[in-house]
């Protein structure tokens, strides 16, 4: 007799196989249920990709992705972080070079909208910060480097503005974008490469002094000012401690 683990491994592999013997009605039910639930999760997380590709094409790509990279979490809000990379590696990417970046924007927006709204950085916390303190980023924050046309396409597609979509000129030039959940909802804004790098250094745990290395005083002040006014950070943790208690 198969052990329980062996049975479950074999059953799972059968459900995830790209094709299987569908003559067994019971197997077909589970395969259909899984594909429907996971495709729905991807549809909800990638609305712009769904509209760009259309129903059939989206379903086909979702089906391949589900078989290749099934969820690793029971919470389906977390499923799909690798979908953009999968699209980047698909044959579609040659014809639609902006596609993966549109998917990354979809995912960043989805992630932001489902993240907790953390407390804002207070003047008291700023005063208490030490030289070796490390900024704690908003849990909803994503930093993206995208093709310039991808953001315009994403916006036009979600607004269903066909005229705007038709006017977009292909532009592979890079832009740097922050995506987060603010007090008023989803916030997406473009920043300079210097501010993008500065914020990234802080997000990755460098101290303020380290993040400012190589920057002039005015440049550093502008970068820090934007980080504070945009509420990119929620507090500080001393170097060496992994994170603050939940605000």
């Amino acid at each position: 007799m198969l052990s329980l683990l062996e049975r479950q491994q074999a059953f799972q592999a059968m459900l995830l196989a790209s094709s299987s013997d569908e003559r067994q009605a019971g197997i077909a039910v589970y395969r259909n249920n899984i594909r429907a639930a996971l495709t729905l999760a991807l549809r909800l997380s990638f609305p712009a990709i769904l509209r760009l590709l259309g129903e059939d094409c989206f379903r086909a790509h979702a089906a391949r992705f589900i078989c290749a990279q099934p969820p690793r979490e029971g919470d389906l809000h977390l499923y799909g972080d690798a979908f953009a990379a999968a699209l980047a590696g698909s044959p579609l990417a040659a014809a639609l070079p902006y596609l993966a970046d549109v998917a990354r924007l979809d995912w960043a927006a989805h992630r932001a909208l489902h993240a907790p709204l953390a407390a804002l950085l207070t003047p008291q916390a700023l005063r208490a910060a030490q030289g070796d303190s490390v900024f704690v980023a908003q849990p909803s924050l994503s930093r993206l480097t995208l093709r310039r046309d991808a953001r315009a396409i994403w916006t036009a597609v979600l607004e269903q503005d066909d005229a705007a979509l038709a006017r977009i000129v292909p532009d592979p030039g890079e832009i740097h974008v922050m995506v987060m959940r603010g007090l008023g909802g989803l916030e997406i804004f473009e920043v300079s490469p210097e501010i993008f790098a500065f914020a990234g250094a802080l997000v990755q745990g460098l101290t303020l002094e380290q993040a400012c290395a190589g920057m002039g005083d005015a440049e550093a002040a502008e970068a820090l000012g934007l980080c504070l006014t945009r509420n990119l950070f929620t507090g500080f943790t001393p170097t060496g401690r992994e994170e603050l208690p939940c605000p």
């Binding site: 491994q9 995830l16 249920n33 996971l38 099934p70 969820p71």
Partner: peptide, 25 residues
């Protein structure tokens, strides 16, 4: 039910073989 093994979650309530080992588990 179970939803997956080896770190996978399949988003469906999958059938469990019903025997003493699965009951213990």
């Amino acid at each position: 039910a179970w939803t997956g093994v080896n770190g996978v979650h399949l988003a469906d309530l999958l059938p469990l073989p019903l025997h003493e080992d699965s009951l213990t588990l």
